[in-house]
Design a protein around this nucleic acid. Structure first.
Length: 541
RNA sequence: GCUCCUGUGGUGUAGUCCGGCUAAGCAUACUGCCCUCUCAAGGCAGUGAUCUCGGGUUCAAAUCCCGACGGGAGCACCA
């Protein structure tokens, strides 16, 4: 009671003690009256409080952005072309693009390709294709490696201001010193020596012999700050620049420079980069460059669906999954092939919010979004599993026309029939002799015999109430296809040997006329995507 | 081990910054009803959280403080 009053009348908050007394008096006197009378009193004098509370408006999409100015927001999505894009990439891309859209700003796609050992054109292309399919649009597309000269320029600037130095220690020594929070002798070299060292990195030094380090703070609790690497030597051929460069910037340095230089105002990354925030700010401060706002979000993974490149690669090598588009995988390619729509992924990701708590989403959350997109334009077809023959006497016609969708006008299809019909075993086993069933879109049949095969008599009339309705396909031109049903790949860390179920099923001949990639609903079974003329993939119920 | 992040119904989240009009909103899942020639979609209703736990501050705490416990990440010349 007290809270309610203070909540709606903040001006009383300073007089809490006085009010407390009054309230208890009023409450006491009200309690003297019977419930009936209280009710009557309210109805007569205060009808307003009986009205149902109006619901709070739900915020659409992402939370507002700190420091965002309409029209001036620049975000970015920087994938490394070192693997196939997956649901995690989708999250990062969608969040950044969506924020740019929200504020009428721009979003940059920047291929983060500063490790020649890892990048490959194959991945670069796959990422482009994946993003394209997702329908996320970028205003600027570039590569981090476009700006190599800029990195060198800024690197030299740091060396010349004494904020970076060339370190020639062994890798192990560097790592050990970092653990022990100790500086190495290299850090005491003067600017001239460092300049000489820098020059030598381009010719003389071999990979591993010298690195450029940022003068951070070897005593810092944040290990990232302990004189991190800015440049290192890699002689591997770069996938687009070939052997033009061999001194390559590290991730932190490249990101800092790029974001600042590209005019990025808000940079969102997954939270494993959270510790780099201080470093990036420190680098930009050292160079007197503008700092963008950095936000972080949790990684997105599905239960039992590995996202890691290492695991994916090994699954493929062992033949446990066919390829990166295997429908059990969370790659974009696999999701697409499985029948998940890009719009559904987008809605789903936005529904997860911008939380930093770990998100291990169950796949059915995505499915439910997808179902809403897919339902409206999925043609309904009949499909029979483990066919049982049903022979119908007195069939009065040789074809039927069946609507392609129960509520939307998607036209009709003509099915040619004769007395031999196939129904699913699951339905057949529940049918008793002398009962009546309805073959959907065809008519009612009284079952006269139940054996290996069933027999029945056609019944005139369109009675549909209170009668078992089942789907069917004509025997004479049914089309056999393989139906793949993906299940969870890993169950409790353990590879699920039965994760890909294969069914042999029979569809209507109309299946052959559908386009590849079309989403269909096998009636009373679920949504599936046509993968090819003789294969479909189960999407979800 | 050290450091950082995180902890709201079965699940995913909103609310937490700036304590009060919320014993907590939405979605999903589940249950029931309606609709329906689908076990889909759609409509309606319902079950379900003392906001991880224990202290503290306050007239008042999911919201602030301290501690414990659980989960995740970083400690690479990868990004």
């Amino acid at each position: 009671m007290l809270s309610k009053i203070l909540g709606s009348k903040p001006e009383f908050r300073t007089k809490v003690n006085e009010i407390i007394g009054e309230i208890s008096e009023v409450v006491f006197s009200v309690n003297q009256i019977s419930l009936e009378e209280q009710k009557k009193e309210i109805e007569e004098n205060f009808p307003d409080i009986l009205k149902p509370k109006k619901k709070k408006e739900e915020r659409e999409g992402l939370p507002p952005l700190e420091g965002a100015i309409e029209g001036k927001v620049v975000t970015r999505f920087p994938p490394e072309p070192n693997g196939y894009p997956h649901i995690g990439h989708a999250k990062a891309a969608i969040i950044n693009v969506e924020y740019a859209k929200m504020y009428g700003g721009k979003c940059i796609l920047r291929m983060d390709d500063t490790n020649p050992e890892a990048e490959r054109m194959e991945y670069h292309a796959a990422i482009k294709v994946g993003l394209d399919w997702l329908g996320v649009k970028f205003d600027i597309i570039k590569n981090t490696s476009d700006d190599m000269e800029l990195f060198y320029e800024k690197g030299i600037e740091l060396i010349n201001s004494g904020k970076a130095y060339v370190c020639t220690c062994k890798r192990d020594t560097v790592s050990k010193n970092r653990k022990e929070r100790k500086s190495c002798k290299c850090s005491f070299r003067d600017i001239k020596q460092n300049n000489q060292g820098w020059e030598k990195m381009f010719e003389k030094f071999k990979p591993g012999q010298a690195i450029v380090r940022f003068r951070g703070d070897m005593k810092s609790d944040n290990a990232v700050m302990r004189d991190p690497v800015l440049f290192r030597i890699i002689d591997e051929k770069h996938y687009t620049l070939g052997e033009k460069y061999r001194v390559w910037p590290s991730y932190d340095f490249a990101v800092a420079i790029e974001d600042s230089n590209d005019g990025v105002t808000h940079a969102f990354r997954s939270k494993e980069f959270e510790l780099r925030k201080d470093l990036i700010n420190a680098i930009l401060d050292a160079l007197a460059m503008r700092k963008p706002y950095q936000g972080f979000f949790s990684r997105l993974e599905f239960k039992g669906m590995p996202i890691s490149k290492r695991i994916l690669k090994s699954l493929i090598e062992q033949g446990k999954v066919s390829w990166y588009d295997d429908p059990r995988l969370p790659t974009l390619e696999a999701l697409r092939r499985r029948g998940i729509k890009a719009e559904a992924i987008k809605k789903f990701i936005l529904s997860l919010g911008l939380t930093k708590a770990n998100t291990l989403a169950p796949f059915d959350a995505l499915e439910s979004f997808n179902r809403k997109f897919v339902d409206g334009d999925s043609i309904r077809l009949f499909m029979v599993h483990k066919p049982k023959k049903l022979r119908i006497q007195n069939l009065p016609f040789s074809f039927v026309e069946i609507p392609n969708h129960p509520t939307k006008d998607m036209g009709k299809r003509k099915i040619e029939i004769d007395e031999n019909i196939l129904i699913s075993e699951d339905d057949a086993k529940n049918i008793k002799e002398h009962t009546k069933i309805r073959l959907m879109g065809l008519g009612n049949v009284t079952i006269t015999k139940v054996n290996e095969e069933l027999e029945g008599d056609f019944v005139e009339g369109v009675e549909t109430k209170n009668i078992q309705k089942i789907h069917w396909v004509p025997q004479k031109n049914s089309h056999k296809i393989k139906l793949l049903i993906p299940h969870q790949l890993f169950i409790e860390e353990e590879f699920n040997e039965n994760s890909l179920e294969e069914l042999e099923v029979y569809t209507e001949p109309h299946y052959l006329k559908l386009k590849e990639g079309e989403e269909i609903q096998f009636v009373r079974f679920g949504y599936c995507r046509k993968d090819s003329q003789n294969q479909a993939i189960f999407t979800h119920k």
